[in-house]
Design a protein around this nucleic acid. Structure first.
Length: 499
RNA sequence: GCCCUCAUCGUCUAGAGGCCUAGGACGCCACCCUUUCAAGGUGGAGAUCAGGGGUUCGAAUCCCCUUGGGGGCACCA
């Protein structure tokens, strides 16, 4: 049952690649909207021209799109025109709206021009700091007469526009944190809403846009709690009903501070590049600060939507736990249908080939045959190369020390490898299958008095170059008789070389 | 300095006065399975519910204080 009165938004600023925290906030907005049948809007807050870039905007749209949390209104991720009746959805295309809103505030004397110079403001702040007072605008220009303003204008000084902060207490019933009240005396004085060049600042654009776009619920990070009174004041000054607010707990670094690039991996793109699935990421992110209250850990998006409830969102922050993310991702990889897994693995193989980490890319058929032995061994998609990259590499390097099993010496290893090679060479190639390869090799070990495990380990390292691999006989099958024999030869040669 | 705010195993969490001698999951340890590595199964260690006061027949759950943590105080968003 769609509810047109419920409208939420994610409003990222393109000043960096899509942040995992932004993705989480977007997800919670999406979950809330879908759960109640509301509308999920994406708005680009690009008024910080100095730090923003179009490349970042693309990264954000692409990342959100990839995550699988589609917005109902906003820029078209494919690069087309905006979608939705409240556009445009990029703030730099809405400048006249802010200008008009500011004019209304100016006309009602709810805002005023301020001619203070950056130097004056810096001096004020320094003085306040020295006196151990909280920083705040002193109000030098708050009560300028028309003549004084005209005089300054005549000097060629360009004023910023400041919003008059009224005295009193502003409060709201936060949907996750309950009642919050803040005395406006602690807001830092009258704040700037328009720069001298007329471009608007954050606090002003959010409110003008949230009002214009009829946003009913503002769901954002806890770091915005202190901004909320300013926004409420602005809504009131603009004569617009104040929306509901819900402040989400922050995602934290391992040391408990707000997640940052310095102390953690924050770009969604980096997780994507490592081969984390959207399903795993979404599942994990949804469980940071929220839980369905049941004992289900692996939950698909539509189930999360069905169970989501803002009232059950936590108040305290949650540390980002990569181990748990990896486990969850593995769960999702194991749940992927074969064809789907193959499709998702492909880009990672192509990338590995481009980087020279493997020499060729397997086709779908080869990959499909491999899935039974790799699917349960992948914590991430990118791990495929590490796991079985030796299958697509022309030459492997197996050094002498790893070639010789723990309980063996080089001579025994050579002897065993030679015997195994001979056995495999004469093995019927039509029955080059795991079930057919195992018995004769076991018999070989027994006849020489070797432990089967030692023999298998020697062969494993000889044909793969590593001690940890998928099951040996499946590996030999994937390798094929020709390459298996060649690698056994190369290994014996390596052992024969003087150390 | 000021304002706001949070507080259950190492981590993510269940818990909305008696069901809690606090449950699950990740991680860790052991065992089983086993040719290695995983996956899977079983079991285990791990939280005097930050501390102290109340309220109550009864508190992890309600109130107060303390402590500790976090967030915020821009012509950034």
């Amino acid at each position: 049952m769609p509810d047109p009165t419920i409208r939420v938004r994610i409003a990222p600023s393109p000043t960096g690649p899509l942040h995992i925290g932004t993705a989480r906030t977007a997800l919670f907005n999406f979950l809330f909207a879908r759960h109640v049948g509301g509308t999920f809007i994406l708005r680009i807050e690009d008024t910080d021209v100095a730090r923003g870039s179009e490349a970042y905007e693309r990264d954000i749209l692409e990342g959100l799109d990839w995550l699988g949390i589609p917005w109902d209104e906003g820029p078209d991720p494919a690069g087309g025109g905006d979608v939705g009746p409240f556009g445009p959805y990029r703030q730099m295309q809405r400048l006249d709206l802010y200008r008009a809103a500011a004019d209304r505030l100016l006309a009602a004397d709810l805002a005023y021009p301020c001619f203070c110079t950056p130097e004056e403001l810096a001096a004020d702040r320094a003085a306040q700091e020295a006196a151990k007072l909280p920083p705040r605008y002193v109000g030098r220009c708050a009560r300028l007469t028309p003549d004084e303003r005209a005089a300054r204008l005549a000097e060629g000084r360009r004023p910023v526009t400041r919003f008059r902060v009224r005295s009193g207490v502003v409060g709201w019933n936060d949907l996750v944190r309950d009642r919050i009240e803040i005395d406006t005396a602690n807001l830092g004085g009258d704040f700037v809403i328009l720069r001298a060049d007329g471009t608007p600042l954050y606090h002003f654009t959010v409110v003008v846009d949230d009002a214009a776009m009829e946003i009913s619920h503002v769901i954002r990070g806890e770091d915005h709690v202190g901004n909320t009174p300013k926004h409420i004041l602005l809504f009131e000054a603009l004569g617009h009903p104040v929306p509901e607010f819900a402040h989400l707990p922050l995602i934290l670094n391992p040391d408990g501070t707000k997640m940052s690039k310095r102390k953690g991996q924050t770009a969604l793109d980096d997780y994507r590049a490592e081969g984390f699935l959207r399903e795993g990421l979404v599942n994990y992110l949804a469980y940071l600060g929220w839980s369905p209250g049941t004992e289900e850990d692996v939950l698909p998006l539509h189930e999360i939507v069905a169970r989501f409830d803002l009232a059950k969102v936590h108040k305290g922050g949650a540390k980002f736990d990569r181990e748990r993310l990896e486990w969850l991702n593995g769960q999702w990889i194991r749940r992927l249908p074969p064809d789907e897994l193959i499709d998702r693995l492909r880009p990672f193989l192509e990338r590995a080939a481009a980087d020279g980490r493997i020499d060729r890319v397997p086709d779908d058929e080869e990959l499909r045959a491999l899935l039974p032995i790799v699917q349960e061994r992948l914590p991430t998609l990118a791990a495929i190369v590490d796991l079985v990259g030796f299958l697509w590499t022309d030459t492997i390097r197996a050094d002498r020390t790893t070639l010789v099993p723990k309980r063996w010496d080089a001579a025994t290893t050579s002897e065993a490898l030679l015997a195994a090679r001979e056995l495999l060479r004469t093995h019927d190639q039509v029955t080059w299958e795991a079930d057919e390869l195992e018995p004769p090799l076991r018999a070989l070990a027994e006849s020489h008095g070797w432990k089967a495990g030692d023999l298998f380990m020697a062969i494993r390292v000889a044909v793969t170059g590593r001690t940890a691999t998928p099951p040996l006989f499946d590996t030999l099958v994937a390798l094929g008789p020709e390459r298996s024999l060649a690698r056994l030869d190369a290994a014996t040669e390596a052992l024969a070389e003087p150390a």
